[in-house]
Design a protein around this nucleic acid. Sequence first.
RNA 1: GUGGGCGUAGCUCAGUCGGUAGAGCUCCUGGUUGUGGUCCAGGCGGUCGGGGGUUCGAGUCCCCUCGCUCACCCCA
Length: 419
Amino acid sequence: MSAPKLKAPRGTFDILGEQALAREALEARAGALLGAAGYERIETPVFESTDLFARGVGESTDIVSKEMFSFEDGSGRSYTLRPEGTAPTCRAYIEHGMHKRRQPVKLWYLSSFFRRERPQDGRYREFWQVGAEAIGSADPAVDAESITLLATLLTQMGVREVRLRLSSLGSPEARGEYRERLQAYLRANEEALSAEVRARIDLNPLRAFDTDHPGTREVMKSAPLLLDHLEQDDLEHFAEVRGMLDDAGLLYEVDPTLVRGLDYYTRTLFEFTSDALGAQSGVAGGGRYDRLVEQLGGPATPGMGWAAGIERILLAGEAQHFAPAPIELFVALGEDGEAARRAAFALLVEARSAGLAAQMELGGRSLKGQLGQASALGARYVAIVGAGETALRDMQGGGQQTVPRDTVVHAVLRSHHEI
RNA sequence: GUGGGCGUAGCUCAGUCGGUAGAGCUCCUGGUUGUGGUCCAGGCGGUCGGGGGUUCGAGUCCCCUCGCUCACCCCA
């Protein structure tokens, strides 16, 4: 019996080649954009106490109730592979006493997250998100800045057919009150609702707005809307955020039925989708979470943030070709044997010390094969090293001459500067 | 988690009525008594996702399973 073939686990993938280069480019863009806006990079542990997500994200959410990869260490403690980035970031904010720093504290991350969902294109069990969190200020300008930065990032990444939907959830109190009102309304019309919606009346009545079920849709047409039940200061906050987005020239659609599957959101809530994607059309989402830090045991501290899916940005982005940077010198072996190989290696080391992007033949190829290799690497020059002689070949002009080996690096550097 | 489609070399795929596998690309070698991106020739490479079953015989039919994918769901 032979061992079964080893494969990457379901819903996971290796990142190679052009994918790796595309992601590097995205990370560089995000770093430049967010760094210039005062966001500091943060990386939190891949796993955290299960309790962090249970308390932060919410027990009744899909994420916590059925999608977490949890495990116990030897001592009976329960840990969970992070399913999202906001709760860990807030945990770090509290743990490092960041409320003592100048507020708001702005943090960004690019990391992988884990949810046990059924995979399909654009939805993976290990997926990557770039996220930004601004913690410590309730100023509506924080919301507007945060959303604007995200819009800029998506534009820079060439994400096609983007739409922004915006809403406000208000305070937890108003939301709670509204929630009860909505539940009462749903119960009063229960017989017309779909089974799934009916089953979720207690857990998450807001879901009822997100349905294709005809009967439910009919009922929801005249259902009470959260936006009509917000408190005055929440309405003002929302209006101010909208005003600033208008001034920034951002197009958006106010959608009072917008729902997020995480419990911590308050006030501003938004989602970017791309019609270039299939069912997994959400590219980025976020909002304000003014009670989360306190809920996790820190001082009462408002927060605002978002996360964008790397795979979805790339899927919805304009097709771009990435190629590794060409090298400047390829050191080929002009003859077999240790003497030539050692001379070649010494030249390689010398070239790199001089700052050249250089590679040498490592594959045992014929000279024809070596030149093909050099060509594929985009090498400008090839040094063909023998135990005695060394030839320097210009791969663009095609010229070649025998030169003293210790002048090769100098010659390449000089032509490099002339270009 | 539910339902549908698909799963043959590293990649893209062909495989007729069941008769134990092919092409192109890639890679390597040769044509050039060692000198690249074209061309020509050759070569490496597959327990046909995995496991059972039917059959004299299964890549082809049946069942199970794993994976991908589409929709639902959910979300980034």
